[in-house]
Amino acid sequence: MFFKTGTTNKMNRINQKLQENKKLLSIYFSAGYPNLDDTVSIIENLEKNGVDMIEIGLPFSDPLADGPTIQESSTAALKNGMTTEVLFDQLKDIRKTVTIPLIIMGYFNPMLQYGVEAFCKKCQEIGVDGLIIPDLPVDVYNEQYKATFEKYGLINVFLITPQTSNERIHFIDSISNGFIYMVSSASVTGSGSGFGNEQTDYFKRIAELNLNNPQIVGFGIKDHDTFTQATKHAKGAIIGSAFIKHLTQHGAIKIDAFTKSILKA
């Protein structure tokens, strides 16, 4: 399964990372926030401070699956002048300094306007390893875009939620070749006040399905406790809104303080 991706035999950085014997911390931020040119330094700093994987948010005017924190950071990033072109330009030398997996997370319309193939090609050139596109449905991906993504060695990451049926989870597992993004609860990003029994039962239920792809939990992870709970049964966890709040408060500095508070290292 792992070697199926890409035109070369080189293993995708995401797959390599998933093989490491540790719980993974992944961080999401909106590119171009708080300042247009913070993107590269935020990525470098996150890597330096022990983050395992980064989701670079390509801002969108109408982010349907996001709560206020990510909405506001996207709006600010767009006001700062962030565009698909600008982001690709900022990232052009990123592989000279950064080795951890990089994923672009964004909504489908900006990719469609850029041209899906051109977008994928650019990702490969830069060294982006995967994409998360919440509003690109599984069936449309499977029928129209899978071949293109694979041609450029990109891993597409799908979401599941507590409402996703087991049958559909197995289907999503069968077309995934990296990890499954497990949305912690029925919500947009940035909500939730810790995890209750409902979530832990759900994390356990999914773990017991013995899927081919490891799961990484996202939505509602904001501190050491929620990170620990989420990764008890899953391979890793993704933090978005809580990190963006940190950026809002402190700017793109003191990133070590944030990651330390999560990892308690």
Binding site: A65, D135, L136, L159, I160, T161, T164, S165, R168, A186
Partner: peptide, 11 residues
């Protein structure tokens, strides 16, 4: 047309 929706809305 079609249904370009996040997985959360799928069910």
């Amino acid at each position: 047309g079609g249904a370009y929706i996040p997985e959360m809305l799928y069910p």
